[in-house]
């Protein structure tokens, strides 16, 4: 589903990330562990096409991201990659339903209100469709953020620290939510975290070394 080969990324001559060869097949899930500063975010940004690698090849869904123009990369990201960020960043001026319509609009996909309704009811928040983000509990907001990430049936879901700051119970719930939704659309899920509570739930761990 994704592969990285000989990828290296530096900030001011300091190597932030170096990966020789790492990949995952469609539908497999991966946990990336490492303390802060180990390059987790850089890795996510490279896979999401937010950053272009300074050397090496990043492929997602058999597409070499380096071959895409800026606008094509944006569109590819919108259609194939779902991002869940630590701070959820829902659009505060839009209702839940409009936030999801926006995801379809930005990806250049047809706007399908019934699909959104279905997804929200699967997540148990159908009654919050017209609510604004500031009216939601954290758990509800996280569900909306996950809904936004899986709405366009991406091939790859990237989650950055989805469970830090959550108590054990909520941590389990958030993880279940991500795994369920990823499986439902057959997506590969990659979680980057320093939260070791997630370890038992993943077959494959990938630990990034601390950079000197």
């Amino acid at each position: 589903m994704f592969s990285l080969a000989n990828v290296q990324h530096r900030y001011d001559e300091v190597v932030a990330l170096a990966i020789d060869d790492w990949s995952a097949a469609q539908g497999e899930h991966r946990l990336v562990l490492g303390p802060s500063g180990s390059g987790k975010t850089t890795l996510l940004h490279l896979l999401a096409g937010v950053l272009r690698p300074q050397s090496g090849v990043v492929k997602v869904a058999d597409c070499d991201l380096a071959t895409l123009s800026s606008a094509a990369l944006d569109r590819f990201r919108g259609q194939n990659i779902g991002l869940v960020l630590q701070r959820l960043h829902l659009m505060s001026s839009l209702s839940v339903e409009k936030n999801l319509l926006l995801a379809q609009y930005c990806a250049g996909l047809p706007q399908d209100a019934s699909h959104i309704e279905q997804l929200l009811s699967d997540l148990g928040i159908a009654d919050r469709a017209r609510a604004y983000p500031h009216q939601l509990s954290h758990g509800q907001a996280q569900r909306v953020a996950v809904a936004r990430a899986v709405l366009n049936r991406p091939k790859l879901i990237l989650a950055d620290e989805p469970t830090s700051n959550l108590d054990d119970e909520n941590c389990q719930q958030a993880l279940r939510l991500l795994l369920d939704q990823a499986d439902r659309c057959g997506a590969t899920l990659l979680i980057a975290t320093h939260d070791s509570r997630l370890k038992p739930h993943f077959e494959h761990h990938f630990t990034l070394p601390v950079n000197e």
Partner: peptide
């Protein structure tokens, strides 16, 4: 600026 960044992650181009 985060809103704008989110629009980009959702697939909107710089021009949009």
């Amino acid at each position: 600026r985060y809103d704008l960044a989110i629009l980009r992650t959702l697939g909107a181009s710089r021009r949009k």
